[in-house]
Design a protein around this nucleic acid. Structure first.
Lengths: 341, 341
DNA sequence: CGAGCGCATGTAATCGTTTACATCCTGACA
DNA sequence: TGTCAGGATGTAAACGATTACATGCGCTCG
């Protein structure tokens, strides 16, 4: 491996000069600069990241900790983060937790000295304790986490507001029996969406019924099963609102299996508006969340914190959601028109 | 930041002893070992990665270079890689190329000294030149790349064989007018799948027709547009085979828009078998590729190369694909409950 | 013409580890 | 009792960069 010394020797200068050429940290005469560059090029030199970060204590790397790497949601988050990081010349150290509870602490530890800051997505409600394993004052941005006492910058999507808007929309279409397929247990997003659902019912003057709130775990299978249970009730709902799109898609196939037409017999709606949502049949009404923007915004806040460690911005920022109405809720009917009052 | 020195001082030992406790590189008496561990724990010490890798010249990090981070395909690859890497105690430095052609070289350079090895996914046909920017003998595993003269370990999926099997299946169902929606231009996977398609036609004794081969770019939009074009032909195909699932899903919605029933009027099939494939309506017949296994296998080969740099295994390995028949091709008629998962 | 300034460059300390080598100590054995 | 083996520990030199400080040189200006 060719080092800065090799380049210095070959170019007939000192290592300091080579370093200065690469960092523009001090003026270097044009001709020496050219000579160094040429020699470096020819030798195939590029500075050694570890050595660099040892002395500068900057790694130019951001850590990204995700609960899992499954599905479009996470690939979108990473995409957003990667874009913003790349623009700023930062690398990404990605890791998933895969359910290990002590994993968060272990992962945080093993990243020490490897990253300048962290983006942590921990929707798990009791993950707050994890913060202790990183030095206080370490730049961190929390994604979709519960409001914690710990003083971290955090970013959440407007879960409750989105869910509430969806219920209002369904109620506005005349639905009076609106059911919820809930998200994973002990998941902050899931709880907030449920809260929004209940609040929406209240504002529409609809009663909350325990049998209309069934549990899911964000997977298609669970959405399928939950919808089947709802449709088999003595008084089945006329609208099914799933806490994410995967479950909504599961619900759609459950409706088919159960012989119910969507949206004629029953309306279905989801949450997240993943790219696939518009391609299922019927296209899925959902609450749009700009996931990659979420990742990008988190990255920007982290980079801000790195640039100006002094004035730390620890606010909790909420990303708005928007209602996307497609055919699955019956608001827009296909060519054979069928009005809903 | 607490360093090894602080721990050594607080525990009343030398830095060497602390280091030995952490690396088990030499025997340390049980009681000193315990004392060091306790002190370290209490001080919140964990070894500094950069310093460590500077002296050992091992980073315990793998670089993953992907053309883009969009869609389920890439999230699955990363998931597979992450799983295998985590099991071996390795970190992941992920980066996308986002289309910059010189990006590959730049990315490779900027990863020097930060990773022990690389997994590079470069389906671009003329990316072969990139190899020059990394020191020869550097451990690399190529994913889904064209067979290159460069001596790299590589991994591909059985694109041509899968496509051929799909065409054979469709022909076996009686289809004689089978069209292809091709993948992105200058993409190796796309070319191989096209080759398999043509070969399949030949073996089934069907003529190759230029108007039945329309270009796409792997996106839903392009699949939608391509299918519309096919359906508007004077003699439209009875089966549409898209070079990936996203385009197939686009084709499904195009068929709906065009008033053609799938699979009664036209059969549709895809490639990749992404998780969503079984949830669209009708469920999509596809060529199954175990994408996360692809990532995991690539990682294992890379780790092998790291463990035994001497006997380098530079073979080109092909991952088999399997045909997954669902309703969209008409092989399984209505009875909706009876799908192949 | 000499003082002094500032540009270009070199020298060497430093970052936090690992590890070869040196040292010390304890106990077994002749 | 002296020797020696070998386990436990310490000392200090790397690793490859950055950077404060020192140095040398050509100018300008009083």
């Amino acid at each position: 491996m060719v080092t800065i010394k090799d380049v210095a020797r070959a170019a007939g200068v000192s290592v300091a000069t080579v370093s200065r050429v690469y960092n523009s940290s001090a003026p270097v005469r044009q001709d020496t600069r050219d000579r160094v560059r040429a020699v470096a090029e020819q030798l195939g030199y590029s500075p050694h990241g570890a050595a660099r970060s040892l002395i500068t204590s900057r790694t130019h790397t951001l850590g990204v900790l995700l609960p899992d790497l499954y599905g479009e949601f996470f690939s979108e988050v990473i995409r957003g983060v990667d874009g913003a990081a790349q623009r700023a010349g930062y690398h990404l150290l990605v890791s998933s937790l895969r359910g290990e509870s002590h994993g968060l602490e272990a992962a945080l530890r093993s990243m020490r000295g490897r990253v300048d800051g962290l983006i942590v997505m921990s929707p798990d409600l009791d993950a707050g304790a994890a913060g202790r394993s990183l030095p206080s004052g370490f730049p961190v941005v929390l994604l979709n986490g519960p409001p914690s006492d710990a003083a971290y910058a955090s970013l959440v999507v407007a879960n409750a507001e989105g869910a509430q808007a969806m219920v209002a929309h369904l109620a506005g279409l005349g639905h009076r029996r609106i059911a919820l397929v809930g998200g994973a247990a002990r998941n902050y997003d899931a709880e907030e969406r449920r809260r929004g659902y209940r609040q929406g019912l209240g504002e529409a003057g609809l009663p909350w019924r325990p049998d209309y709130e069934v549990a899911g775990d964000f997977s298609e299978e669970s959405g399928h099963a939950a919808a089947l249970r709802l449709l088999s009730l003595p008084e089945p709902p006329t609208a099914i609102f799933a806490a994410n799109d995967c479950m909504a898609i599961g619900a759609l196939s459950a409706c088919r299996d159960h012989g119910r037409k969507v949206p004629d017999d029953v309306a279905v709606a989801g949450f997240d508006d993943i790219p696939m949502a518009r391609y299922v049949d019927p296209p899925l009404t959902s609450v749009h969340v700009d996931i990659s923007a979420l990742g990008a915004r988190a990255t920007e806040r982290l980079l801000d914190a790195l640039r100006a460690p002094a004035n730390r911005d620890l606010r909790r920022e909420t990303l708005p959601t928007t209602l996307v109405v497609r055919r699955s809720c019956g608001a827009l009917t296909p060519t054979p028109m069928r009005e809903i009052p």
